[in-house]
């Protein structure tokens, strides 16, 4: 069966190996470096309440919004003191894990 396969090249230890790639390997998600200014959803859920709007000055630790997930109201805080640069969600939005919700600068 191996003759008819379309082999690809995989580099390990500076050597190029001819091999098949598994679906899981091909579909692995690329690494994205988290930014300190982004407020992201650490769990999928629904935006229940928002306490700030774009342009507001915020203190580090100030509550920005309520993310409801698994029947818990999670308070999401400002990661730093600064200005709300972008509000990327609105009340009632369903958000997925790691989605960027607010950008503080």
């Amino acid at each position: 069966m191996s003759e008819n396969q379309e082999y690809e090249i995989m580099v390990i230890g500076d050597a190029e190996y001819k091999t098949l790639l598994t679906d899981k390997y091909k579909h692995r998600s690329p690494y994205v470096r988290p930014k300190a200014s982004d407020v992201t959803a650490f769990i999928p859920g629904t935006i229940r309440e928002m306490f700030v709007k774009e342009g507001d000055k915020v203190e580090k630790g100030q509550i920005l919004l309520i993310l409801e997930a698994m029947k818990m109201n999670n308070r999401l805080e400002a990661p730093m003191t600064g200005v709300v640069k972008q509000m990327l969600v609105k009340t009632g939005d369903i958000v997925s894990k790691n989605q960027i919700l607010v950008v503080v600068k």
Binding site: S2, M10, L20, L21, T22
Partner: peptide, 12 residues
């Protein structure tokens, strides 16, 4: 199994 991922060890 060198036929897949050169037979490497990984998490799975």
């Amino acid at each position: 199994q060198p036929m897949y991922l050169a037979g490497v060890l990984d998490v799975d």
